[in-house]
Amino acid sequence: MTAEPLGATDRKVGRTTGRRSGSSKRLARIDAAVGLSFAAPAVIGVLVLGLVPFGYVIWYSLHDWSPLIGEFNWIGLDNFTRLIADDTVWSSFLTTFKYAALLMVLNITLALGLAVLLNQKLRGTTTFRAFFFSPVIVSAVAWVLVWNYLVAANGGINGALATIGIQGPNWLRDPTWALVTVVVIQVFKGVGMNMILFLAALQNVPAELKEAARIDGARPSRVFRSITLPLISPTILLVVMITTIGAMDVFVPIQILTQGGPGRSTTVISYLLYRTAFEQQDFGYASAIGVVLFVVVLVLAALQWSSRKRWVHDEV
């Protein structure tokens, strides 16, 4: 779907260099060799460490495999029939979607809000920018460990709420709050990155356009909606895609904060996969879950991609 710009550039580059040089055939041959060998490490790497292992995953998913005992037996589609009837798997997919959707909404709203705030002409925005960005560079484990203390039932946040007479919920142990709490902790961790991307996009919106609209009598909110938002929509798409892919991969906060509980309210699919493979030593079944996960990611990516034209302005 994206080879077009690549092909086009290639052709142009090839043609111009070809015309200039006397022995274009020789140059083309050298280019072919150099190009292939430049691209080789990345391409071979992805083949060997991505695509081929995925083939193995499909192969494994057709087996009953307990590596602890060393059994590896062909069982056809049994893992998939088991999977279809397995509520745990489907609830984990649902939890993953909930997690990703909530993270997306909170993260992007907050990132955009912060970017707009920091885009005001105020002294000291650099300092605040550093504040908001700093969790991005704090190690993921460290961030989560600290919050684990703060959100404990008798931890800092509830302690603070208690002093003003509010009984805070049991953040990580209450099924209605646990996932939200994990999401919020992750939003604070990562929103700085998206904020920077938005900030860059905002500063690239031509001031004349906004000014013109303002002179035409548009209120600031209207200017934002009609001028700014459409102009930064490519960045929004980008941020949405990065954030989704990141959300599908979440592991550290779940492992450290909730271990998937209470109940299964925070068991996301990547965590279920890890547990199935490395805790229950059921590699075959874990592979089957992996295959389904891949299909789901594929469908989601396709949906996001095909919907982009409807809301992304001015994509060339």
Binding site: L51, V52, F54, G55, Y56, I58
Partner: peptide, 9 residues
């Protein structure tokens, strides 16, 4: 991707 990798494996 799926087909090719599967054959390899």
């Amino acid at each position: 991707l799926s087909a090719g990798a599967m054959v390899l494996a």
